[in-house]
């Protein structure tokens, strides 16, 4: 807990763009069809946005808009968003409480995944509870299919990595490693 507090204190980031939470709530209405009520998605393959660090959601939208990240649903949506839209949406989703997703997970895979999360240093950037920070996403309790898809995309170099850190981290992962990690991460209870 001391460590977590210190990590936050190491750099105090200024808000780059003042966000409007009420505008974010309004702008998020069309997003709910896939990303769920309150940002907790239930559609397999679709990530939950509730409780994501605001800079992560905002950066993801920036990458969809400039084409570094591609998705048949998200690319056209992000193409029409302004910086202010993105800031409002990201700030709004960051305030919502994340809930565990109903999904069937394999305990043996999750146990193997827990060891992999240590040996592959996931917590170095995603924090000890995999709750994310700054531009780094919360992973705990995320959708299994989404985690599988993203880890495979990072390994293939097609996930639109900002600085190449996840692309490098994913290179040594085998297909089985990705399965195991995803089952572990998806089963973690997201901290409120």
């Amino acid at each position: 807990m001391v460590i977590v507090a210190a990590m936050v204190a190491a750099t105090v980031a200024l808000p780059a763009l003042a966000a409007d939470l009420e505008a974010g709530r309004r702008k998020s209405e069309p997003c709910a069809r896939c990303h769920g009520d309150g940002g907790n998605a239930t559609v397999p393959g679709t990530p939950s946005l509730a409780g994501q660090p605001a800079w992560f959601t905002h950066w993801a939208l920036v990458k969809f808009r400039d084409g570094r990240r591609k998705d048949p649903m998200m690319s056209p949506v992000a193409a029409n968003l302004s910086d202010a839209d993105m800031a409002d949406l990201a700030a709004y989703y960051a305030t919502l409480p994340p809930r565990p997703r109903p999904q069937t997970l394999d305990a043996a895979k999750a146990a193997a995944g827990q060891r992999l999360a240590v040996s592959h240093h996931c917590t170095s950037c995603h924090r000890p509870d995999l709750g994310g920070q700054h531009q780094v996403p919360r992973l705990a309790g995320q959708d299994l299919d989404y985690l599988l898809r993203l880890l495979r995309a990072y390994r293939a170099g097609t996930a639109g990595d900002l600085e190449g850190l996840m692309t490098l981290a994913a290179q040594p992962l085998s297909d089985a490693d990705i399965e195991n990690l995803a089952h572990y991460i998806a089963g973690l209870t997201p901290a409120p």
Binding site: A16, W55, L61
Partner: peptide, 9 residues
């Protein structure tokens, strides 16, 4: 840790 960079100017 490195200074995180804002997603917007």
């Amino acid at each position: 840790a490195p200074v995180p960079l804002p997603p917007t100017p």
